[in-house]
Design a protein around this nucleic acid. Structure first.
Lengths: 339, 339
DNA sequence: CTGAAAGCGCTTACAG
DNA sequence: CTGAAAGCGCTTACAG
């Protein structure tokens, strides 16, 4: 069962298919009555334009490709949601491709986007590195990154203001009176981790607190890694009284390790996360954390991309501020500890 | 900067573009040397076939549309991940469309999929109803639903075996010795809720326990709703000693309400969830729940869809069994009288 | 084994 | 204001 084409409508309306094409696009060349008549017929026949045929001539597909290393991640999913939302408003469709950071699948992503001639690409970087970014750049279409972990390769990106946010988060712990504040990080080498670590250091410096290397422990950005990293911190001869975690996922693991050690948060140890995933609010205790406006960041990335597609200028690196959200996982240090 | 086309390659190779087309598709009509020579040239020139041009003649786009009411939901995201994975293996690309259950956006979804002539559609229903399903069906392409909440409209779907799983989950509470077991549901009218409720009733019946209407409380499938629904149960003159929750999100809210009431899980109340989201493991206490193989369900839906696209037969309704996962939120009821 | 031709469903200069 | 023509980049009968 063939789809109805402009030829079918042309036949029914007794005009040329050129006229139908113009009528459907509300061309000012046609007189309003003609347009109305033709559109009515198109409607009746259930006409739907073929994106493929159109894009062949216009050289615009009205599609953008979104690459994620995994979408089964609360952080990424909401960014994608924002991208899709903004794209949709501008009548763009979204191709979603999921690489799992597997080289073979990454190849597929690139090939698929290239074949579909996407007008632009957003890469939302989770913690796992994306091998394909250099390849994508060979496609000659605009690319915007969200929280990119491999800086310097591309011009356009939307990033959370890691440094400022983590300085502020660590600063909160300082103000509460903590002196032994640990940093529970992601794996080494990722930009977000480096920046958040730098903010932590800065906050210590401002408070005149010495940096203690043993108070840095690295997880993997997931609960499992946070759990292990926290156990190491707890095994220290003089454990920290507060921990600033790379993200909420890590913090969840840390909370678990602390519970298992028979300690209480925030009575014995204060914990701060990063991201403000919905779980932060339902953790026990509810987690003090830094909110990333994920959906908004996705929207911004899409909007920058659409500007670039139109040939307009756009911010090269857009830094979005995080927001410290106070909940119940932070308190002054326990009394036994001399201040 | 134009993309290189088969004409460009034809000129470089000194053959017709028909020959190039055949060479690129490894036609047995051509002699191997010709094929090799042409493919080499194509490679050198960085040729990438145009999906639009091809689909125009083949009438196949090698794309499937995935509709979600929201992707920012841990359940949905992983289903989508499975769909994308399976589609990718079969060289299909995925259009993602996100309706937020807003009528206007739903219209966009349908129009967009129709214009792109997707070969098939998967609808992953979250708790929110999807208005567009009837409209999608007018597109004359195969549709497969995942955990559809509005039964009977379509033929093909992949569903979790709600009845069996919730009977088993409730059965666990019965075996532990609970007599006052509550059901904390989703909103009325959704199929999953009805089926899970039915499984709960069945388990009570089997155990010879009377159904007590006041022990049923409805949330909204999210922590907020679970929280409110649990507060109602706790306000009962004779509160339940165990609660089977519609899903993990609801259970998270329930846990919070119980904590706020100064009670402990599982000492005072046992809680069972459904879904086995990652948070279940990191809840306090870790949540006993029913695992849904979400990614696998997504894969299955995609595979069924691809079969249908090929014109093959496929299961109409595929019921996937859930798996009871025992953690620490369940225990025997508190000792009868004094605590 | 290879080429010329037709056609998929559109858009858009070019005529009239 | 409208139509005839060309062309976007492919695939595939039809000839040879």
């Amino acid at each position: 069962m063939r789809n109805v084409s402009i030829k079918d409508i042309a036949a029914a309306a007794g005009v040329s298919h050129s006229t139908v094409s113009r009528a459907l696009r509300n061309s000012p060349l046609l007189k309003p009555e003609t347009i109305a008549r033709i559109q009515k017929i198109a409607q009746e026949k259930g006409y739907t334009a073929s994106a493929a045929a159109r894009s062949l001539v216009t050289r615009r597909t009205q599609t953008i490709g979104v690459v994620v290393t995994t979408i089964a991640d609360p952080f990424v999913a909401e960014v994608v949601s924002g991208i899709e939302e903004a794209a949709n408003e501008h009548r763009y469709s979204v191709f979603l491709a999921n690489s799992n950071a597997e080289p073979e699948r990454e190849m597929n992503v690139v090939r698929s986007f290239a074949e579909h001639r996407v007008d632009g690409i957003v890469v939302t970087s989770s913690r796992v590195g994306a091998l394909y970014t250099p390849m994508l750049s060979s496609m000659q279409v605009p690319i915007v990154l969200v929280n990119n972990q491999h800086p310097g390769e591309f011009v356009h990106s939307v990033m959370i203001a890691n440094f400022e946010a983590s300085r502020q988060a660590t600063g909160l712990l300082v103000e509460l009176g903590h002196r032994r504040i640990a940093y529970l990080g992601d794996r080494f080498g990722y930009q977000s981790d480096s920046e958040r670590f730098a903010g932590y250091r800065e906050a210590l410096d401002c408070a005149g607190l010495a940096f203690v290397p043993e108070l840095v422990s690295h997880g993997d950005g997931r609960p499992e890694g946070g759990y292990e990293a926290m156990k190491k911190l707890l095994a220290l001869p003089d454990p920290p009284t507060a921990v600033f975690c790379y993200n909420d996922m890590s913090a969840l693991g840390a909370l678990k390790a602390i519970r298992e050690a028979g300690l209480r948060v925030p009575r014995d140890i204060s914990i701060v996360g990063f991201d403000d995933l919905f779980v932060a609010e339902y953790a026990e205790p509810p987690l003090t954390t830094v909110r990333q406006p994920r959906r908004q960041m996705g929207r911004l990335a899409a909007e920058i991309l659409l500007k670039l597609i139109q040939g307009e200028q756009a911010d090269e690196v857009l830094r979005v501020p995080g927001e410290l959200v106070l909940r119940q996982s932070t308190a002054p240090p326990p009394c036994p500890e001399p201040r």
